[in-house]
Simulated assay, not measured.
Amino acid sequence: MATVRLAPVLRASAGGAKQVSAQGDNLAEILSDLYEQFPALKEQIQPEQELSRFINVYVNDQDVRYLQGLETAVGQNDTVILLPAMAGGR
């Protein structure tokens, strides 16, 4: 199973967990398993078919937007990081 690390703002939707495990061969399958475990996460991460533009998703520290997006391969020992985009400044 892959490890999915959740940013603090997402943890309430996952029972307060900092990280959880999910199964799948690619990011789409990992997220589908994650949504089955924690349905409230879907609206924050993937309200439509594509990932929300307000969340950054990394597989082993690589941004999936520069890989294969939802089709990015995920191995059993890989780490997926879900990190909401931050905005601000002057």
Rank of each mutant, 00 (worst) to 15 (best):
L41T: 06
L67F: 08
L41F: 04
Q62N: 11
A73V: 05
Y66R: 10
P47W: 03
E50C: 14
Q44K: 14
Q62F: 08
Q44A: 03
T72V: 02
V59L: 01
Q49I: 07
T72L: 08
E36I: 12
L70T: 13
R53I: 06
D33T: 15
N60G: 01
E43I: 11
A40L: 14
E71C: 13
I45P: 01
E48T: 11
E43V: 13
G75C: 05
L31S: 03
L41R: 01
V57S: 01
D63F: 12
Y58F: 15
E29N: 06
D61G: 07
S52D: 12
S32T: 08
I55P: 09
G69Y: 10
N60E: 08
G69M: 08
V64H: 07
Q44G: 15
P39M: 15
Q62A: 03
E29F: 10
L41S: 05
Q46F: 03
I55C: 05
D33N: 13
F38D: 13
L51V: 13
R53N: 03
D61N: 02
Q46E: 08
D63G: 01
G69R: 15
L31R: 04
Q44P: 02
L67T: 07
I55T: 07
F54V: 09
L41W: 04
Q62P: 00
R53K: 06
A73P: 04
L31D: 04
